[in-house]
Design a protein around this nucleic acid. Structure first.
Lengths: 102, 102
DNA sequence: TTATATGTTCACAAATATATGAACTTATGT
DNA sequence: ACATAAGTTCATATATTTGTGAACATATAA
């Protein structure tokens, strides 16, 4: 079912660490080691997060010798993330405004 | 932390029924009853799904007498969903292409 | 060959999210 | 006041996701 597949893509974004990774990838490709250091999570945990995103088509993976490199599969991923961030900011601003009226 | 809040917005989209609801809302506002009939889920379940989306700023809710009406809080929600759908379609097309080469 | 470094996979415990039905609140009609 | 209809909330059973460390596979170096 299309809604389930669509939701699965959303799920692949729905974790703080994965959002952080998408943010740090931006335009560039990064190696596993570099992402590992920047995020500070356990390597097995990172490997699992990355593999979820690869499976769902968020990232593409390239292996070179012992090393793995990751990048966004398309700039649409960044764009979608940016829009969701704006939805968040709009909401935070609204509650901020509400507080001011008190 | 911003990544957690951002992820929470994504989580609010990360369910097949909620994607379906966002799709059916589009431009228009719909009543609880109408969404209930179109989705066919249990009313308590629907109420909970809707409230998650309202809490995270995806939807806005308007109450009128006994009835509740919902709409997207901003067109950005649709746009983000559309982008994620495109990420999905791109991936499906790629596996499709891969199959053709066999 | 042996050792080492890099990621991945696995098993499993803990944390979260989801579905369900009953109870509840509130507005409206009689 | 009483009954009814519309949603919401609650408790809880189930399912899914996540984090952890150990085991594993593989490429490179000594």
């Amino acid at each position: 079912m299309i809604y389930q597949l669509h939701a699965d893509v959303c799920k692949a974004l729905a974790h703080a660490i994965r959002i952080e990774i998408i943010d740090m990838l931006g335009e560039s490709e990064l190696g596993f080691r570099e992402i590992l250091e920047k995020t500070g999570v356990a390597k097995s945990s990172l490997s699992q997060h990355l593999s979820v995103m690869v499976e769902k088509g968020i990232l593409t993976q390239r292996k070179e010798g012992l090393n793995s490199y990751f990048k966004l599969s398309t700039p649409k991923v960044s764009e979608a993330c940016q829009l969701m961030r704006e939805v968040l900011v709009d909401r935070l601003e609204k509650t901020q405004d509400l507080l001011k009226t008190l």
